[in-house]
Nucleic acid binder design. Structure first.
Length: 292
DNA sequence: TACCAGGATGTTG
DNA sequence: CAACATCATGGT
């Protein structure tokens, strides 16, 4: 068993709400408030579950429970649920924007639910480009169920993210039975190859500045401004990365501010000046507001 | 029916 | 460089 203390500003309730936002989510499962996930660590599947009891309590269900595996699971969870961010600092600057501040009070203790694996956030954001979220989750489910490894435990089957090696070996036509557009298929292949060939490395990117990371990301066909910023906030702890083109953000801002229409990109840049340093985090709170 | 979805790219004027 | 077409399908 792995005990992971949680910071003062932490809400398991809001975390579960976000993790439960779509029933087609296939890279984690929630059963009776317990979170299950499979990771592929050193070419080996690791299934673990997480519950809350005065801190997070993780349990590994696969055979290998070595110290190394335990520490990797611990690190993954700390990263996934963003346990180290200074939320007080975010709440401080949020006072400059009444609407955002109200969201911070309503969702107090909500931490950015990230994607510790950069490859995952890039693939997921390409899938989500331009189409509605439900359809995006369907595409992701087909991709993961077809090309991801799985592990069955107590009658439930859990899936791991397909590896870059697996997806890099596919052709555009391999995606078409699953209703991917040729563009999406090519973009996913491009990204997968970049990881396999070492052109993209999460470890290396993590050492660079925002501008340098973004430059490397958008150099790949299929990664534009939205995808780069989305992945940087979800996978690289760029709390100020701002996916300003995001339709979900537009809808949430319209609702929360009571606007007549959706805000323009220019208006969003102006508004977000008040969120400076935490524009990604603010975006995440606005997304969360779409869940009620 | 037309238009919009967690956009990005290639082409055209 | 801005405007437009294209993608592939589900939802409204």
């Amino acid at each position: 068993m792995i005990y992971i203390p949680t910071p003062e500003e932490f809400s398991y309730k809001e975390l579960l709400k976000f993790l439960s936002r779509n029933e087609k989510e296939c890279l984690h499962s929630i059963i009776d408030d317990v979170i299950f996930k499979v990771l592929e660590i050193d070419n080996e599947l690791v299934l673990f579950s997480i519950s809350f009891n005065n801190g997070l309590v993780a349990t590994i269900h696969t055979d290998n429970q070595s110290q190394v595996i335990q520490e990797k699971v611990r690190t993954y969870i700390e990263d996934w649920f963003d346990l180290t961010a200074d939320l007080k600092a975010f709440y401080d600057i949020a006072q400059q924007d009444l609407i955002l501040f109200q969201l911070c009070q309503k969702y107090h203790g909500l931490r950015m639910v990230g994607m510790p694996n950069l490859f995952e956030s890039l693939v997921w954001s390409v899938i989500g480009q331009q189409i509605n979220l439900n359809f995006a989750y369907s595409l992701k489910q087909r991709l993961v169920h077809t090309f991801g490894k799985s592990f069955t435990f107590q009658g439930e089957t859990f899936y791991a993210l397909p590896t870059p090696e697996t997806l890099a070996g596919l052709q555009i036509e391999d995606f078409q039975p699953y209703q991917f557009s040729r563009g999406k298929a090519q973009y996913i292949i491009n990204i997968s190859k970049a990881f396999v060939e070492g052109i993209l490395s999460q470890q290396k990117l993590a050492l660079l500045s925002y501008d340098e990371i973004k430059k490397q990301l958008v150099a790949i066909k299929g990664i534009g401004n939205w995808t780069a910023n989305y992945s940087m906030m979800k996978s690289l702890k760029s709390y100020d990365a701002f996916p300003v083109e995001d339709v979900g953000l537009h809808n949430a801002v319209k609702t929360q501010y009571g606007l007549a229409g959706k805000p323009s990109i220019a208006e969003l840049h102006q508004m977000s000046a008040n969120w400076s340093g935490w524009r990604g985090y603010a975006t995440f709170y606005f997304w969360h507001s779409l869940l009620g």
